[in-house]
């Protein structure tokens, strides 16, 4: 029996990474909408009080401020609940950040349905979809603490608007920490039956499901994608050409997000594509684990869904 993996808070990991980066780059400023400490910026606020700007509970205005700050050469990081920094402020994100092409970093924490008991007002199950529609905006969805650290550095080094989604519940290390290249994924398991493409915290359970199927003799290519936009089309096409079947997995509606990004790059290949995610409805509330189990996104559910899709060619959630 193996020891339980160490679990760490993704928000603290993220805040710490930005704080370390900011020690060497005085251009980095943090915007809070009564959300900075919850987003992992307690240490940043204590260390760089002049660069920690509080706006209270408002996201539209704070996004405009981020744009204005960026026009003066600063690198603003605005982190708050994912649902609020993508929906409430969408027009400011679209016009003041994307259209103005500003070097603004917007980070949605507690993404997906991690605020499970608080309900759909606090879920972000469409954020990849709506933000990836904004031209020139990078959408990052790191999958483990090491990737969060590396993605934070990559985000701050990248010139241009970035949206990054992180979760809330503690997560385990999945990968050896290495360099992070925006737009590049990694092949984490090799197989020839189908290609599985996953992103964000859903990758942990996807790895477990892929390994469970391997034990049953079903070998799947697993591509782990910390960038949703631009997605690593080269890696996906290479794998899909070999397997002829792609299955996407994400804690997001099963349309519009990673599934759409993958589908768009698969177009010319005419391979089968099945999407695993949340059904397009206002999902229920409860414990996070309960929700994952209900919607088949825990390790058992993903194993079942992947097994069924591979066997029958249609997603279990559609049955």
């Amino acid at each position: 029996m193996t020891a339980a993996p160490e679990l760490v808070d993704p928000r603290k990991t993220f805040g710490q990474a930005v704080t370390e980066f900011a020690a060497d780059d005085s251009r980095v400023v943090v915007l809070s909408a009564d959300s900075g400490v919850s987003s992992g910026f307690g240490a940043f606020r204590d260390r760089f009080p002049g660069r920690y700007l509080e706006f209270g509970i408002q996201e539209h205005g704070a996004t405009g401020v981020a744009s204005g700050l960026a026009t003066t050469g600063l690198v603003p990081v605005f982190a708050a609940i994912a649902a609020f920094v993508t929906n409430r402020n969408y027009e400011a994100f679209r016009n003041d950040v994307a259209y103005m092409g500003q070097n603004v970093k917007i980070v949605g924490r507690n993404g997906g349905m991690t605020y499970s008991d608080l309900g759909p007002t606090h879920y972000s199950l469409e954020d990849y979809a709506i933000i990836r529609m904004l031209p020139g905006v990078v959408v990052l969805s790191p999958q483990d603490p090491g990737e969060i650290r590396a993605a934070a550095r990559a985000m701050l080094t990248h010139e241009g608007p970035v949206y990054m989604r992180i979760g809330g519940p503690a997560i385990a290390n999945l990968f050896a920490e290495g360099p992070f290249v925006i737009g590049k994924g990694r092949t984490h398991r090799s197989g020839d039956v189908a290609t599985v493409v996953s992103t964000g915290p859903a990758t942990a359970n996807t790895i477990a499901a892929v390994d469970a199927l391997r034990a049953e003799g079903v070998t799947l290519d697993l591509l782990c994608m910390p960038t949703v936009e631009p997605v690593d089309a080269e890696l996906i096409i290479e794998s899909a050409t070999r397997t002829g079947h792609v299955i996407t997995v994400e804690e997001h509606y099963d349309r519009g997000g990673l599934s759409a990004a993958v589908s768009e790059c698969l177009g010319p290949l005419r391979v089968r594509h099945d999407a695993i995610g949340l059904p397009h409805q206002h999902v229920i509330t409860g414990t996070y684990e309960g929700l994952l189990a209900t919607y088949g996104l825990d390790a058992e559910g993903l194993t079942r869904q992947l097994r069924d899709i591979v066997a029958a060619g249609r997603p279990a959630s559609a049955k």
Binding site: G64, V65, T72, D96
Partner: peptide, 24 residues
């Protein structure tokens, strides 16, 4: 200095610029 047109955006952008200028 800014891509305006959608209404209600200018004041917040201006505040961001003003804060950025003051920080520098």
């Amino acid at each position: 200095e800014a891509n305006t047109g959608a209404l209600g955006h200018g004041l917040s952008i201006a505040c961001g610029i003003a804060l950025g200028l003051r920080l520098q």
